[in-house]
């Protein structure tokens, strides 16, 4: 019985440790120079999401499998002694699909506009377009916009995460995607302090 418990504990810690490692090492999505300012009752972002697809994912995309990439933003008020308070969050899902007839990559949704469709002749262009944070303006909720003042309190903190949404993949692909590191494309939460 003792051995069993010990074994389970070791297995559990190995799995958790590995998951964490995998999450950071294999995250092909990265955030470059993230930045944000709070102006005009909104959060204006800067920086770039580098959405590098693994070969497997790229192959799937080229074979007509649409990919959904969810980008989430969070805004925290920094507190001194306890954890920071999350005061706003946004989430957008963009999708990319290969259009064989026109030999173009179609990107649906950009920024706040979910219905926009943009076409690109190369995947690289499409991904850069999808990952562009520069000029993205996220409106703050009404009541929050009134009270927000970066100079007061201890400041604010923003977080961003971009990830490939496995649940949006065709059902047969999901078990494979869940169990393969090739499909684990995630920036993880990237956090930075908003300049005064």
């Amino acid at each position: 019985m003792k051995i069993n418990k010990l074994f389970l504990a070791v297995l559990f810690s190995v799995v958790v440790f590995n998951l964490n490692i995998l999450d950071t090492v294999l995250a092909d999505f990265t955030v470059i120079k993230p930045g944000a300012v709070l102006v005009n009752k909104s959060m204006e972002l800067s920086g770039q999401l580098r959405l590098d697809l693994s070969a497997k994912v790229e192959e799937a995309l080229d074979k007509g499998i649409p990919l959904a990439i969810e980008v989430e933003y969070r805004l925290f008020r920094i507190r001194k002694f306890i954890w920071d308070a999350q005061i706003a969050d946004w989430s957008f899902t963009h999708s990319i699909q290969y259009h064989a007839l026109s030999r173009q990559y179609l990107v649906r949704g950009h920024g706040l506009d979910a219905s926009s469709v943009e076409s690109f002749t190369t995947l690289q262009e499409a991904l850069i377009f999808m990952g562009t944070l520069d000029g993205l303006v996220l409106p703050l909720p009404e009541q929050l916009a009134e009270t927000i003042d970066p100079k007061n309190n201890h400041g604010y903190r923003a977080q961003v995460r971009a990830r490939l949404v496995i649940e949006s993949l065709p059902a047969p692909l999901r078990p494979v995607a869940y169990t393969s590191s090739d499909w684990r494309l995630n920036t993880g939460w990237v956090s930075w302090k908003i300049a005064d």
Binding site: G64, I65, H99, P172
Partner: peptide, 17 residues
């Protein structure tokens, strides 16, 4: 074409599924 390509690609995962 896209559907067919998708099916061809998903042949393996479909079999697995």
């Amino acid at each position: 074409f896209a559907e067919y390509e998708k099916l061809v690609y998903l042949r393996g995962p479909l079999k697995f599924g």
